[in-house]
Each structure stands twice: as structure tokens, then as C-alpha cells.
Write a protein that binds this DNA or RNA. Structure first.
Lengths: 149, 149
DNA sequence: GGTCAACTGTTACAGAGGTTAACAATATTT
DNA sequence: AAATATTGTTAACCTCTGTAACAGTTGACC
């Protein structure tokens, strides 16, 4: 009565993680599509809004992604005028990212949409289950990502 | 002291799910590479071993994937002689998948490797935290996947 | 029975996310 | 001054995934 195990796969944390992530990602993709943002663009925009003048390299580090993989994302955000790459006086290698007013507005809108999506995703869980899930996932992240940050 | 929140992203279940899944997937990919299996191939092989004579369509349904996406995976497994597609007398549309002895052996080996990986992934968690994580992820899956199975 | 609907495996195509390797321009270290 | 490191960028590639179409086959219905 606890959990009908169809397969040994259902006992694996990794497999359950993947399936749950697939569900969450498709929900997020759908609700961000209304705003015209891909999941990847949202997370990059979010950090650009929260950390003004952030650099693409440090942004990539925050997101746990190679910096090369971020170029096209920033391109898209800049083309839609949600942020700008601005030159930095002291260092001519880097370009500071600053979100535009339009970008900040889109970010706010996306935050609302995702909050609703999170409620939908976790509506079958109790408040303590949600907190526990978040805490445990963060624990895994901090342990594994902390190895070579 | 509980959790240093760098960004609002870190409070989102969906984002933590994605990051944790990335970690787990890369671990799994690495440890399955020794056996010569991709993650996708492992999950397909696992079900073929557990459910003899399973059909590609029902296998796809179990994995939550389109059946077209499974063709190349089954091709790879068949080319490596880990399973066979055999004709079914009653119905000439379907082909039953049956794992070979070599396939069963590879599956066993992969199970061991993944068990070690799971211990590595969850080594920072208590036993109750692990059980809780698995239970909560399954709860999400059952709720969302149960909508249109 | 014959027709229409439904299912199976397959192919071709597309797209998102991600990685690695190289590169030129620029800073930093020694 | 020279060697080393960093930044942004491009190009090529991989995996997973979905969509749309298809021919062959089966089942349902009248």
C-alpha cells in the first residue's frame, strides 16, 4: 500500500530525481513560454537582476554551467532588450550585465508564474514535506558542488 | 546557518531538482560508461530484463517516453547483443524484447555500479532523509504521471 | 465481410541543454 | 619583459526529447 514498485528503477534516487525533474521542467517551460522565456533564460535573467553588473563568467559559475554555454542565452536576452552588456572601465575583457527595466519586469512576471507552478508541483505534499525536500536537495547540491566550486 | 541563499533560485524546488538531477546524472553516466551503457540504455535494459517479452510501446510507457525515442536505444542494445527483438506469433505488428544472457549480466553489473553511485550521492544524508526523499519524489511522480498515464 | 479506427515500429526532422577545444584580446604574475 | 591566466566567443559535437508522418497490421462495428 505504500508504493507499488513496478521496477527496481523506482527504488533508485537517481531515477526518481530524473522523472520528477522532467515533470517540473515541462511545467516550468510551459508557464515561462507565456512570458517568452526559456528556463535557461529565466535563471540567467534572475541572477542578472539580483546581482547587477555580474559578469558572464561568474554567472556561469553560479549556474554551474560552462561560460561558453551562456553566450547564446545572453544574446537572446540582449536581443529582447531584457538586459545589456556594458563595458567595464577597469577591465576591457569583461562586460557587466545589467538588466533593463523591461528585464526586471519580465523577471517579476516570471517569478509569479513559477511560484504558481511550484504550488502546482507540490500540491500533493505537506508543508513539512516541501521544506524537507528543498533542504535535502540543497544538502546534496552543497556537498557535490562544494567539491570543486 | 541553515542555508546560505545566494539567489531566489535556491529557494525553488524546481531549480534544486534540476541541479541535483544534473549531479546524479553525471555520476550515473560516468559509472555506467565503464560498462558501456548510456543512462537511457540502462533503464531500457533494466525493464527488458525485469519484464521479459515486453513490447517497445509498453516499455516507452513505463519510461514515460515517446516510443519513437526508444528505437535507437533498442537498436544499440540489440547491436551489442544485450537483447533481441523477436517476432510474436499472434500479432505481426509487435516484437517482444528479450534480454540475452549477456544483457542480464550487463544489467547486474550496472545495478551494482549504480548502487555504489547512489551511496555516493546520498552519503551526506541520513537513512530517514534518503527514504523521505525517495518517498516524496515518488509522490510527485505518481500524482503528475497519474493524470494521463 | 468490409470499412474505419486504432495500434506498432520506424524514419526524418527539430530543438533544448550541455560539453570540449580552440582563439584573440586583455590582465596579472613573476 | 615574459610567461601565465582570464574573458568572451565561436564551432563542432553529444544526448535526450518531442512531433509528424508512414506502412503494415489488428480490432471494432455495422
Amino acid at each position: 500500500m505504500t508504493a507499488e514498485q513496478n521496477s527496481a528503477l523506482d527504488a533508485m534516487i537517481g531515477y526518481n530525481l530524473k522523472r520528477a525533474n522532467t515533470i517540473a521542467e515541462s511545467q516550468i517551460r510551459r508557464c515561462l513560454a507565456n512570458i517568452g522565456l526559456a528556463p535557461r533564460e529565466f535563471s540567467a535573467l534572475a541572477l542578472a537582476v539580483e546581482i547587477p553588473n555580474i559578469t558572464q563568467s561568474t554567472l556561469a559559475r553560479h549556474l554551474g554551467v560552462e561560460r561558453s554555454g551562456l553566450v547564446s542565452t545572453i544574446d537572446a536576452l540582449e536581443q529582447r532588450a531584457l538586459l545589456n552588456r556594458v563595458a567595464v572601465p577597469g577591465d576591457r575583457r569583461i562586460q557587466a550585465l545589467i538588466a533593463t527595466a523591461k528585464g526586471i519586469a519580465a523577471h517579476q512576471e516570471a517569478l509569479c508564474a513559477i511560484q504558481m507552478q511550484e504550488e502546482q508541483l507540490t500540491q500533493v505534499l505537506s508543508a513539512t514535506e516541501i521544506d524537507s525536500l528543498r533542504a535535502v536537495l540543497q544538502k546534496i547540491r552543497k556537498f557535490e558542488e562544494g567539491k570543486t566550486p
